[in-house]
Design a protein around this nucleic acid. Sequence first.
DNA 1: GCTTGACCCTCCCGCTACGGGAGGCTTTAC
DNA 2: GTAAAGCCTCCCGTAGCGGGAGGGTCAAGC
Lengths: 272, 272
Amino acid sequence: MLSIGEFSKACGLTVKALRFYHERGVLTPAKVDPHSGYRYYDEHNLETAHVIRALRDLDFSLDDIAQVLENCDDDRDAVAYLENHKRQLAEKLDHYRDLIHKIDRLVTQQQQTREDVAMNQASFEIEERQTEPMLVAGLRMTGRYCDMGKGFGQVARKVGRHIAGKAMCLYYDGEYKEEGADFEPCFPIRKAVEAEGLHVRELPAARCVTLIHRGPYDTLSRSYARALAYAKDKGYELDLPSREVYLKGPGMIFKGNPKKYLTEIQLPIKPT
Amino acid sequence: MLSIGEFSKACGLTVKALRFYHERGVLTPAKVDPHSGYRYYDEHNLETAHVIRALRDLDFSLDDIAQVLENCDDDRDAVAYLENHKRQLAEKLDHYRDLIHKIDRLVTQQQQTREDVAMNQASFEIEERQTEPMLVAGLRMTGRYCDMGKGFGQVARKVGRHIAGKAMCLYYDGEYKEEGADFEPCFPIRKAVEAEGLHVRELPAARCVTLIHRGPYDTLSRSYARALAYAKDKGYELDLPSREVYLKGPGMIFKGNPKKYLTEIQLPIKPT
DNA sequence: GCTTGACCCTCCCGCTACGGGAGGCTTTAC
DNA sequence: GTAAAGCCTCCCGTAGCGGGAGGGTCAAGC
């Protein structure tokens, strides 16, 4: 018969834990002095204690341990519980793996943005440029521009891990529309994915009038005006859809400072 | 200004959570009516709420979120926190992966034991057999047999994932010794591992008198007597170390029922 | 027999991030 | 004016203990 302190040393469980196990009924001492309330443990308790320790080390809950103790005499009986517990652990594992991947994506996106910004920092002038063809997944929608965020959210959720570049939006109207606008938020993706509701295809190359707009979205019209004036000046006829590429916009976590947003406007020139 | 219920719908956080965030100071409503105590939230709160949601989805603690909110205006500022958090998640990931491996090992060992037992169930008679050479890691010790368990524990901890078969023990004394016995608990392993304090080598093949003992260890002497009598009868001279292979003994979790233990005794015959 | 120090006891609070519910105001709609 | 819905605070519960307060018990030495 060992006192709780001696037993604690013998089995490697803390005194606090032993008292708690007693209270929860998973490890009842062989004898409790009714006068002093002192707990005394025997050989059989030691065995149970070892079992509890082994199972706690495997992250079993006390309730599960109680079940195992009740139904098993043998490692063999415990196999079903072990398998079951393993499944639960595997779920947690997947969960954490998923979170780590998400963080990874956030960080690399952030890095990408920083590089893009650094690269484009010099030129805020109107340019003519040939865009590269790219594979995109988009969600065509009709409504107000402020609902665009939800569209991006939906697309991102569906093609999440295949995203290969900056968010962009295609505009199928030739003008600014308060309501009933026809536009398509999309993401460049690495490889063709099937996703219901999404339009996945290669966006063709096009010669464009481009301009990087710096500042909040509600001042975009000024930059549009400049680009359109330039095109008119050159006598270009413009094509649809026009594009906006969100080089630096609201982050995945923070909205950030709208004064620092960078948006590239791309107005395709109708080939002559 | 939205009431807490409306705001809850707007940001996707529960009313309970919002009150809790207020109490913890991570999301203070724009206005609190001093008379009624009603909380009212504004546009800026909505932004903060989104940040909190994004970070909670990544399993950030509220304390960490508070720090991020205090020090970051931008996804870019948050990168360091994300990296840090990722490290913590990676630790958990490793932890769970480790546990799953441990469970796997337990289960496969258990299965192995079952198969071994099924195979050996028929024969409890004395046999002569050539043992196969095998790679083992052992810990030679001097003392009492009851300390053998600790020896197995040490060996198992060091070569854990390389264990390839049943625990066994080599006996270097020609007789039973109460104290000062010279023996070596060891495990067969898959490939040579370096482990300080352990003796890793190939155990040579040997022709043996073998016998499977069923029951607790304190009745082993009867089986030894039978095997020794057989050897004497045949006129064999015996070699050292003799071996015991623990086909079915105390499990990794449960001690199990000693009456069901199976132990193979192997007494090497000195080549003539 | 007495003291002392080590050991043990039973509460109670703390941690995370809320959820559930009781009991009581306030606001809003009809 | 009234009723329903919404809001408030306060308290308890979660898992598995750790820390500590305040007080009883045990064994040994004098």
